[in-house]
Design a protein around this nucleic acid. Structure first.
Lengths: 140, 140
DNA sequence: AGAAAATTTGCAACTTAGTTGCAAATTCGG
DNA sequence: CCGAATTTGCAACTAAGTTGCAAATTTTCT
């Protein structure tokens, strides 16, 4: 089982043309077994005895991101962004668009998306929010 | 014009039963004029001469959040979350669900949403991501 | 209006998340 | 196994946000 995972991780790294180091294999193994997006500290915890410096973990993730093996879930940014809630309904706000080139953000007001229904039993969805990425008029 | 904005801000604060202080009026005015979600530092910048301590700005935003006048756009969390990109298409990943009670996050795999189309001309949407909030099976 | 009570503000110090430079260690290709 | 390329750990740093507390402001009560 664990051998398998190890081999799989190594294989993946090799095809991605990344150096196959202890750190990368370990982090990748954690991600392969994860059932949800993880933060650096959560990954570190799951590495257990195999300790790596947090800088190493971040840099490993960076390399995995670079080759497209990994995503940043939530397309999060580092800082919080605030806006008035006035023209948002209880269940959703307008979508936000962020330009991948210039980084500018725009509110795409005037569109309301159909409310998502979970395919998994037992989830009660109260609010949804959609984030879009692409090129803004100025950059396109 | 500016008088109007001021009055409007005061009115809003009054109905929300918040102390009507210089800081709150100023921050609210900025938000009323904003065309997109703003970070604390961006708000500070727009306050111009009316300087307030960043702690004050954060606490002001907190109070506006508390009474529901303001949102955190992107439902952002403070730290980045990473996950394997394997079962995501070029244009979207599965939606993520976060429980507002216990804070747990789940991947709602197995659903693909229709790709959003911008109602505004000139936006080229490459990727979309949906985030859901509500109660998870355990908390519901 | 004036005073007491409630709330907000600013400051300094702190935490958390993530980054950078650099020297030492590891990995790869021949 | 050697040398070049890449990765690692460390320490020090930045950015974003938080906390405690005393002083200032706002509201309420009379």
């Amino acid at each position: 089982m664990r051998r398998d995972l190890d081999l799989q991780a190594r294989q993946i790294l090799k095809t991605a043309k990344l150096y196959c180091t202890a750190g990368r294999v370990a982090v990748l193994r954690v991600l392969l077994r994860a059932d949800k997006p993880l933060r650096q500290d959560q990954i570190a915890k799951r590495l257990g005895k195999k300790r790596f410096n947090k800088v190493t973990i971040y840099r490993t993730l960076e390399s995995l991101l670079r080759v497209g093996l990994v995503h940043k879930a939530f397309m999060a940014e580092r800082a919080w962004h605030f806006e008035l809630a006035h023209n948002c309904s209880e269940t959703q706000c307008h979508p936000h668009f962020t330009c991948t080139k210039c980084g500018s953000t725009h509110c795409l007001t005037g569109m309301s998306l159909p409310m998502v229904k979970s395919p998994h039993k037992g989830f009660h969805i109260h609010r949804q929010q959609t984030r879009l990425e692409g090129l803004c008029p100025a950059c396109a």
